[in-house]
Every structure is written in structure tokens, then in C-alpha cells.
């Protein structure tokens, strides 16, 4: 374990640099494409559209898919929340140590994330329609996230396993800029563009009275 801890400590900065460098490069390529403001006179508010798109429009009751697939929605939320808290756990540990009482919380978060990711992995592997749209990247990205969450979970309970967790983080960092996990950055761009256009066209307006 000590050797693993030592080796991963050496490699980690390079993995992080690789990840950040490629993410910046990939994002620069996307942003380089340029956005031209639509020229048709606006009917609604682009700002309100973006705000709505990044907030209320994602609430579970706003989507048919959530009603039809509550477990998928829950798994998606569980996985993303698990990742967020596990990354927070890792970042916190770099600069200080978390109080003892917080460790079980991070362990639970990582475990929920892990189970959720596993559920989504199984769904992708077993449903015919998910098979039709899936590539190796979809499975690999999920598997690496699971591994990372497993590392976080175990380390929250047994701090001596930190080396193993760092190894999973290295693998994830190496992979992030290559595949679909990159959507974590584009999520905000994509939803903002959605809100911008639908808001501008005055589509997202539920507050108007229906009478003269």
C-alpha cells in the first residue's frame, strides 16, 4: 500500500496536468466556433430563458421522462451528487483534514453514487434501446467513475486505502478529456444555449393569463 501511495503521489500531478491541458484545449476548440446572436427581433427574454433553463426546467415534475423513469432520474441525481461530494472530499483532504463526523457522510455519498452509477451501467448493458446508442466510451466512462467512487467510499472508511483511491483518480483524470465525461463542462453551455434560444423566442412563458 505504501508503495502504491508513493507512486500515485508522483504520477498524480502529471495526470492532473494532462487532464487540465486537454480540457482547456478541447474547450478552446468548441468556443472558437463562435456564437452569432440571432438577428430575428426577440419576442421573449433570453436572460429569463437561461435562468429558467438552468433552474426550474430541470425539476423532476417538469419532465415526462422523470415521471416515466423515476429510478433513472434518481440514479442520475444520486451519481452526480455522489461524484460532487466525493470530489469535494478529495479536494478538502488536499488542504486540511475533514472532521471525523463528516467521514460517514462522504462514505454514504460515495456509496450512493456508486450504486447509482452501477444501476445506470446495468441499464445500459441490458436494455436493447440503450445498447443501440451506446459505445465503449459510455461503458468505460461509467466504469471509471464507479472505480473512483469505490475508492472514495473505501478511503472514507479506511484512510490507509488512500493510494488506491488516488490510482482511480489518476485513471479518471487521464480519461476525462478523451470521452463523454467532458459533458460536465459543456452541460452549462448547452443548457444556456437552450434557454437563450427558447427564451428569446418567447416559448418559455407560463405566467401569461389566458383571457382578454
Amino acid at each position: 500500500m505504501e508503495l502504491l501511495d508513493h507512486l500515485t503521489r508522483l504520477v498524480f500531478p502529471y495526470a492532473l496536468a494532462w487532464c487540465l491541458f486537454l480540457l482547456v484545449l478541447r474547450t478552446a476548440v468548441v468556443l472558437r466556433r463562435g456564437y452569432k446572436v440571432e438577428l430575428g427581433a426577440p419576442k421573449g427574454s433570453p436572460r429569463r430563458g437561461i435562468l429558467y433553463s438552468l433552474t426550474f426546467s430541470m425539476l423532476p415534475w417538469k419532465k415526462d421522462s422523470t415521471r416515466r423513469h423515476p429510478w433513472t432520474y434518481a440514479a442520475g441525481m444520486g451519481m452526480h451528487l455522489g461524484i460532487f461530494l466525493t470530489v469535494l472530499f478529495a479536494l478538502g483532504r488536499r488542504f486540511a483534514s475533514w472532521p471525523d463526523w463528516s467521514l460517514p457522510i462522504f462514505a454514504v455519498a460515495a456509496f450512493v453514487g456508486l450504486v447509482s452509477a452501477l444501476g445506470l451501467f446495468v441499464k445500459r448493458g441490458t436494455r436493447a434501446y440503450m445498447h443501440a446508442i451506446s459505445t465503449l466510451d459510455d461503458f468505460l466512462a461509467n466504469a471509471l467513475v464507479q472505480l473512483y467512487l469505490l475508492g472514495g467510499f473505501l478511503t472514507a472508511l479506511f484512510p490507509a486505502l488512500n493510494g488506491f483511491w488516488r490510482l482511480t483518480a489518476i485513471l479518471l483524470l487521464l480519461y476525462v478529456p478523451l470521452g463523454k465525461i467532458y459533458h460536465m463542462l459543456l452541460f452549462f453551455v448547452s443548457r444556456s444555449l437552450f434557454g437563450l434560444q427558447f427564451g428569446r423566442r418567447g416559448v418559455l412563458r407560463h405566467d401569461l393569463p389566458i383571457s382578454y
Binding site: 478541447r26 476548440v29 468548441v30 468556443l31 466556433r33 463562435g34 456564437y35 452569432k36 467532458y182 459533458h183 459543456l186 452541460f187 453551455v189 448547452s190 444555449l193 434560444q197
Partner: peptide, 10 residues
């Protein structure tokens, strides 16, 4: 453009 590239990537 930015929107299409974002949709292709995301």
C-alpha cells in the same frame, strides 16, 4: 458554430 459544436460534443 458554437451551438452545433456544443450539441455534437455534449
Amino acid at each position: 458554430n458554437l451551438p452545433l459544436t456544443t450539441y455534437l460534443e455534449a
